[in-house]
Amino acid sequence: MEHLELFLKSIFIDNMVFATFLGMCSYLAVSKKVSTAVGLGAAVIFVLAITVPLNWLLDQYLLQPGALSWLGEEYATYDLSFLSFIMFIATIATMVQLVEIVVEKFSPSLYNSLGIFLPLIAVNCAILGGSLFMQSREIPTLGLATTYGIGSGIGWFLAILAIAAIREKIRYSNVPPALRGLGITFIITGLMAIGFMSFGGMLTGGDEETAKETKSAKVDTLEDTEKELANNTKVIE
């Protein structure tokens, strides 16, 4: 349930393009045709699914304050979090290179469709943004980090697919000359982002319900629920 919630949330509510504007550069540059947009979108899902969990491990066991305690007690006070930018970007650049080599070796057909987009991705802010948001939102487990990576990738894929489809059709419309190309794309993206905001309410209703279910299911948290109930009734009184 936790996974599904995070998955849907990262696709629709915290959509990379529409909520945080990450990866806009390639989003605008590569969205002229649906076929190329699909290629880049697939590559983004792929790379996010690998780099987010990898950076989660790095963050958990190397960078966070006290993360080095597995090395011994004298390392427990180390705080390397100021290195996270450089570590994350290095991981991403290396992984992209590695993925490119592996894919080229084992699946030439996949390489032909993804290959040209992979180098572009190392400097796509959506990828680094995925890792940085994973860090700042303090995602608790490796599994959830993977879910988050895949979900954000799919969100980005949906966004670029939608704008590419619209841009293919808009060629036949009579757009004011000064707005043609970039200008109208910006405005359409803005309108789509407003549309995506309506997903915002999707999980807030469900949140309370799932919270109650998990609480009543677990005996050890029953006490907390009772306390909370007591508090609630106090407020009402």
């Binding site: 000064a178 707005l179 970039l182 200008g183 910006f186 803005g190 982002a193």
Partner: peptide
Amino acid sequence: LSPMALIVVGIIIWVQRT
């Protein structure tokens, strides 16, 4: 809200290109 940033930039582009 964030979507308005896109629309404002779109309008700047419009003005500049006009």
